[in-house]
């Protein structure tokens, strides 16, 4: 784990802003994601986490800032194109092809590979990682349970052999037991060296998964720590539920100093 900071950044985001009309959902967020690293982004709803992912992958055209993948600028490209470069988003609420079979969902995941040889191999690897899906190959995706749907969404994302996988709210709407299985799958991916960016409202879950955590509030990164740092519970509650909090943290938020130019946290070691 200690080598994480020395590896080159795979995904670099600088000063990214995302706006919907006049609403600025993300205001100048920077982050760097290194090879085989797992970065968690947490924050209350409305904090701009999902918009951040949308802006990075081009689902929404960013209002400003830059994104690069393996040192190639991909900011401003549409999501159809960033997928081809190897940046894949597993979206919030899964967005499966509900009326199509599990297998068709997976095959569509490898759409950008065309008719390459890799496809059957990748299908095999993904089904190995998610044996439930292999058993339910012919079932319609919409009839799977919530947890299986989430796994299918992740599996579909892996089908194009991405460089970076971004997962939005993997635990949303799932029962605790099911969350367990999804988390195990993500852990296994991480162990295999996949570079992950995970957005999660459930802080404690994110802590068990990620190497580092970014906390977002009102469209900016208000703090970042390594995951094993003891998180200041009260401050977290404040970030989520507002209220009497130390004004220091807030002010930090506004000067945008929480970017990733110095990604290592100063608190843990």
């Amino acid at each position: 784990m200690t080598t994480a900071t020395e590896r080159p950044a795979v995904l670099k985001v600088e000063d990214l802003s995302v706006a919907y009309g006049a609403v600025r959902a993300v205001r100048g967020v920077s982050l760097a994601l290194r090879q085989a690293e797992c970065l968690g982004v947490v924050g209350a709803n409305g904090a701009g986490k999902t918009s951040l992912l949308a802006g990075i992958c081009g689902l929404v055209r960013p209002a400003g800032g830059s994104v690069s993948l393996d040192d190639a600028a991909i900011g401003g490209l549409k999501v159809e194109e960033t997928v081809r470069r190897g940046l894949v988003l597993v979206p919030e609420r899964r967005q499966l092809f509900a009326s199509m079979s599990v297998r068709d969902n997976l095959l569509l995941g490898s759409y950008v590979l065309g008719r390459e040889r890799k496809v059957p191999q990748q299908l095999e690897r993904v089904e190995e990682l998610f044996p439930t899906l292999a058993r339910r190959r012919e079932q319609r995706a919409g009839t799977l349970s919530g947890g299986e749907q989430q796994m299918l969404a992740i599996a579909r994302g892996l089908m194009s052999t991405p460089r970076v996988l971004m997962v939005d709210e993997p635990s949303l709407g799932l029962a605790p037991v099911v969350v367990d299985a999804v988390v195990d799958a993500l852990r296994e991916l991480r162990r295999q060296g996949m570079t992950l960016l995970i957005v999660e409202q459930n802080v404690r879950l994110a802590m068990t998964l990620a190497d580092r955590l970014l906390v977002m509030e009102q469209g900016v990164v208000v703090r970042q720590t390594s995951a094993d740092a003891v998180l200041d519970e009260e401050a977290l509650v404040a970030a989520y539920l507002g209220g009497p909090t130390d004004p220091k943290a807030e002010r930090h938020a506004d000067d945008g100093g929480a970017g990733s130019r110095e990604p290592s946290s100063d608190r843990s070691r």
């Binding site: 988390v183 999660e200 459930n202 404690r204 802590m207 068990t208 989520y240 539920l241 507002g242």
Partner: peptide, 18 residues
Amino acid sequence: RKDETVIASYLGTSHLDL
């Protein structure tokens, strides 16, 4: 703000003591 269930619903319960 202080309610346990509310905090749990927002922050999530710890994965370790599920």
